[in-house]
Amino acid sequence: MLEARQLETKLASLYKAGKIVGGVYLGKGQEAVSASLGGCLEWGRDIFAPLIRDQGGRSAFGEPIIDCTRTYLGSAEGPMRGRDGNIHRGRPTSGLPAMISHLGASVSVVSGMLLARRIKGELDGVVGATSIGDGGTSTGAFHEGLNAAAVEKLPLVVAVANNQFAYSTPNERQFACDDLLDRARGYGVEGHDVDGTDFLACLRTMAEAVDRARQGRGPQMVVARLLRLSGHGEHDDASYVPETVRSGPYGRDCMDIAAAQMVESGYADETEIESWREAVTDEVQRALATAQREPDPNPWDERWEARSTNLLTVTDP
């Protein structure tokens, strides 16, 4: 969580300084939800398809932060080599698919990865997870994906961050059910509700959902209530969020709550938390400096080919 917040704060500064082209999309205020999901998953065994506000989950799952800085800064050394940017990155053969911009599309991709493991006899103990927002649950892809996963009883966890606004559109223009959690019953999947600003509650809820999926109880849907503490992207000042909502319970910063919970539970004191902060600040600086030193992609060396195969070599095997 700390790493995500520090890293994204730096990315926002670089964007404002004109050092990052395209968009910067922050998970500010959603770190507790995202990181608690990523932290319940194991790199090398599980699958995680993050969305745009999942730096916390990516870091907790095990994506090296150099992947993030390289992709945002367009380094030719990065996983996307300048061919795609910002949050559109992944390590698809290591259980970390690279998202496309079309919301809901990852639900079926993760399901297909799980289905493949089942056919290969390698599904035991595996969980696949993906994140989405309140707006993303309105897409056909989300519905089709979750329904199909439920039919196959796949060990899928879908974490819905209900951050009250899809870009600028509030919940009441997005869906008409009382609660997004109602949808879980409609899909025949188990639903979990959590206060997304409460770090310990998020940890408990995500652990419960991931465990249940691992035990073979089929897809799990977690709905976390919170507020995005930034714009949709750094180009957006979020002026559409009313002051009453900002100052309400959803407007609490999960980072402050997490720190207080650490101290209160005796897990760490202020000094230790400060030392963690310093450690991640160094790590973030190193990852940014490395990516900034690396070469841009070279259009003259680019292989302008979207297929991997020369078809004239393809005959009967």
Binding site: S108, V109, G112, E144, G145
Partner: peptide, 20 residues
């Protein structure tokens, strides 16, 4: 599959990523 053409292809992409 269910009558869900979008998820049918999404599932196939995921399965292909896993070597199928």
């Amino acid at each position: 599959s269910p009558i869900s053409e979008d998820s049918m292809i999404g599932m196939a992409v995921g399965a292909a990523l896993e070597g199928m």
